[in-house]
């Protein structure tokens, strides 16, 4: 299909998910400019490959491209920052029950949550964004991130524990309580 004929279909199918694309890129990249660069590049890639798109989940398809574009960008622009070692020891967190009281009855304020998400290793951050903000199923996340579904579940569990721990710490140390 010619690029000219492809554009209207692309606008109708893929571009409605530009918000999701930007949200993911913004949380992964951590700043506005890099996020926009990643999304722009990802959209061009998506348009290029749109002729081969046969799926029924254009949002997951676009987000997968955003994710790949981001990691390519990350390797090129921040080669010094190592990706996190996903060893279990690093993920040992205190029993949420110990800190749970502070979180049980009310919603944490946005700024505190923002800091907690930003502090997560990128591999956990993307799972949180995809699951909690985009409400994607385990299966879609597994396909999107090219991970076994069990890994998606364990990373999600660990990410949540880290967030709960972080939020509990914030609220115990002079946070808005």
């Amino acid at each position: 299909m010619e690029a000219r004929e492809r554009l209207p279909a692309f606008e109708q199918t893929v571009l409605p998910h530009l918000d999701a694309a930007h949200n993911l890129a913004r949380w992964l990249a951590g700043n506005d400019q890099d996020a926009q660069d990643v999304v722009q590049e990802a959209c061009l890639r998506a348009f290029k490959f749109f002729g081969g798109f046969r799926g029924d989940n254009p949002r997951a398809w676009l987000l997968a491209i955003v994710r790949n574009t981001f990691y390519t960008w990350l390797r090129q622009n921040r080669p010094a920052i190592p990706t996190v070692e996903l060893d279990d020891a690093a993920l040992e967190v205190a029993d949420p029950a110990a800190a749970g009281e502070a979180l049980q009855t009310r919603q944490a304020d946005a700024e505190t949550v923002r800091r907690a998400i930003a502090a997560l290793p990128v591999e956990f951050r993307e799972i949180i964004v995809l699951r909690e903000m985009e409400a994607m199923s385990y299966k879609d996340i597994a396909i999107l991130a090219d991970l076994p579904i069990g890994t998606v579940m364990s990373r999600l569990a660990r990410a949540r524990k880290l967030l709960q721990k972080q939020l509990a710490r914030e609220y115990q140390t002079g946070g808005p309580s």
């Binding site: 949380w27 009310r106 946005a110």
Partner: peptide
Amino acid sequence: QQLQQSLRQESLYHPAP
């Protein structure tokens, strides 16, 4: 569920400018 609600606050979402 509480964590979920905290994470789903609208102000945490970054729509495309």
